[in-house]
Design a protein around this nucleic acid. Structure first.
Lengths: 121, 121
DNA sequence: ATAATAATAGTAATCATTACTGATAACGAT
DNA sequence: ATCGTTATCAGTAATGATTACTATTATTAT
């Protein structure tokens, strides 16, 4: 894969923030430094980065993909009211049933839903 | 909520199968008994049933929603090669961090990725 | 520096899902 | 049982996130 200024910028943006932005949010942020960057470029590179396991893709209920620059094994909590995504750093335990069934695991995505402390009042 | 023949049929179809069909698959199946049923009707009722927790909605990597008539607490395994969705009946353990953080949990969706026994050869 | 070609910007296309609209059907009240 | 209200429907149009396309630009091996 060749170097590109745009991909470097996109990677820096995702790695540099602690929220879980959508492609459009990353696009808006990237345009501040690279005003002519194309939304298609953002999408293409997000897919490349995700395929290379440089970032993580989250499929959420809002029908948009969210991206996470933290690739360490962890789960997420999504507030059903405000939509906030919170990192949970103690990952869930993988069910023993998986190895018993002879399945080969390469990854996991555990999302817990509910209300965050701000919204549960 | 009023009774409707279409919603009853849709519910029966989902509850009666063990796979995790998309809206279109349910639509195709429904048309066998109700040839004039509309795809919009299928989508609207799937959303109603999901809101009422009669069925579960799964956001997968294929960009289509999949539905599960089994609402018991369980996880899923998705084969990255053939796309097959396998039920895991021993649910993952909820991370202790959640209660410690004061978050109120209403649901969870844990998906494990990898290769099924058919595809791991 | 040059050639080969990966990557880009800008735009058009895709496609799952949702919204809309006039007709139909469920069902409580009469 | 009929009537009126209105939820639900069939059919179709619109939406919007994502992907595909194309001519141009930029990277990198030689």
């Amino acid at each position: 894969m060749r170097y590109s200024r745009q991909r470097e910028l996109i990677t820096e943006i995702i790695k540099g923030r602690k929220d879980h932005p959508t492609a459009d949010m990353i696009y808006q942020s990237a345009r501040e430094l690279e005003p002519n960057i194309s939304l298609g470029t953002v999408y293409r590179n997000l897919k490349l980065l995700s395929d290379d396991k440089v970032i993580i893709t989250l499929e959420t209920e809002d029908k948009r993909l969210h991206y996470d620059g933290d690739t360490s094994r962890h789960s997420h909590f999504i507030c059903s009211k405000c939509g906030k995504i919170i990192d949970l750093f103690k990952p869930s335990e993988t069910p023993s049933e998986i190895k018993e069934a002879g399945l080969f695991v390469t990854g996991e995505k555990c999302v817990y839903y509910g209300y965050c402390t701000d919204c549960n009042n």
